[in-house]
Design a protein around this nucleic acid. Sequence first.
DNA 1: CCAAAAGTGTTCAGGGTACACCCATGC
DNA 2: GCATGGGTGTACCCTGAACACTTTTGG
Lengths: 292, 292
Amino acid sequence: MVPPEGHGGGEGKVPEGHARAEARLPDGYDKYAFEPFAVAVDLAVFTVRGGEMQALLIRRGQEPYAGRWALPGGFVRPDESAETAARRELAEETGLSGTAAAGLHLEQLRTYSEPGRDPRMRVVSVAYTALVPDLPEPRGGGDAAHAQWLPLSGLGIRAEHEAVQAGREGAVVDDRALSRGTVLAFDHDRILAHARERVRAKLEYTGLATSFCPPEFTLGELQQVYEAVWGTPLDRPNFRRKVLATPGLVEPVPGAARLTKGRGKPAALYRAGGAAALHPPLLRPSREGRPA
Amino acid sequence: MVPPEGHGGGEGKVPEGHARAEARLPDGYDKYAFEPFAVAVDLAVFTVRGGEMQALLIRRGQEPYAGRWALPGGFVRPDESAETAARRELAEETGLSGTAAAGLHLEQLRTYSEPGRDPRMRVVSVAYTALVPDLPEPRGGGDAAHAQWLPLSGLGIRAEHEAVQAGREGAVVDDRALSRGTVLAFDHDRILAHARERVRAKLEYTGLATSFCPPEFTLGELQQVYEAVWGTPLDRPNFRRKVLATPGLVEPVPGAARLTKGRGKPAALYRAGGAAALHPPLLRPSREGRPA
DNA sequence: CCAAAAGTGTTCAGGGTACACCCATGC
DNA sequence: GCATGGGTGTACCCTGAACACTTTTGG
């Protein structure tokens, strides 16, 4: 912050830059005195389909990285925040209406600003993670049907324990050891890997898993979300008890019940609870070291 | 990302903007076709002194917000990443040499991009959190001695449970209910509150607390860090056992021992362990709801 | 000898894991 | 009836909380 002044000292720390620096007013500032940064948003949109996590990706038509998959995204417009831009892109890319997209979970992940990450110009990208339920036909409704769900397993995104082996021991996964190769355009492998790790971790201590579910869901469906994201089978009785014992995670829909796959006993329905933070957390099992 | 192309579709989604948009080349792009964004870094630098968390702040000398405290920070230069810029600013502001500052914990917090956050122009700020030990004289060694440590308790930064009361129930504190008023310049109250909450949370499941300690420290000192950050007294025997039972948190310095305040039994010395992630986590007690 | 800080031992309750068992529905 | 998924009960283990106690230093 504190643009032209530097900070407190008052010696006008404007970056010298190779920019079109005109007169740098001593008491004012010149909007165009800096090397231009483009500010964009990138979206890591996840869903759970067919028992595994999938990401919404876009096939690039032009250089650089023509033909490669990339994260959806776009520029931040002059009058909007990155958050707003991300929400707008999310609605466009999922093909949902603005009001429908407003209910989706959207969360800032982190910002990627390495100078060389786009070969054409300096682009600073604020990455967001979005979680959507398994929509019937989630692609862009109109012409932008180039968006597609792809399972993470086919994208060289490593599971955490593999990455930990590749890197050093108990690192919190800020590393780039998470993506096996360069499958996606730009640094999107890294972004997607970071986003996936964040989601995996957040399922433990937040009610995030319900964002993958439709408005009303059964505990079996919720368990499938956990199992898909963590890649671990869970004990059904214990899962059930933990979820119901966690205040604010889910709340029952009074009389409702539904069959799951045409088979078995009809299951009670639940809605997402209001609480975002879970106490106690719902820990995933094993994690190299202690048993289960 | 994917600057001038939009994404895959190929319809050149360049933001229209009130910008100096000249000819928008269909296959190329114009670096200056966008409203200029300034990209800056803001630093929330914390230490533990006198039994409480303190932040490094700077007194602003000019408008806007002249006379108010602000977070240290500065612009990202054309050839550096936000990470590099943050590291550079951290070294400048703490007065440490580059090599000494390289050892400090520095971590990206999140990015603030609301259009009106700086009244003068559009500034997108990537905020970082830094943790430093209680340095003897941590201010800028030279002329920039305007940086000062201030206890958070005097800045209207709420504790988590207060913020939770103010907001809704178990929210994960992405709210602005964390800062009581507007004490700092710009949106720095909010940034500082977010940073503090992150540090508090991260102490539970990472080895971050050692970043507040000198290279060699006693378990008593480490415990004081936890107690200061969480604002809760901890049971010494249990703390001791947990820390020593957590692989990679600390490692003993073979023969060393030191007195703590001239009094009592000399304590064994420890170094920070290599592990960043703790299993099992070191949970803080109570947290409104379950006892302790 | 006393105060202060470090370090050890022990008890006890709650929560997590594992697993056995019963219920309801479609075919 | 049988397969499939939903739901309940229970025994055991282990961690974490509480607290009593010993050790080593300076005054």
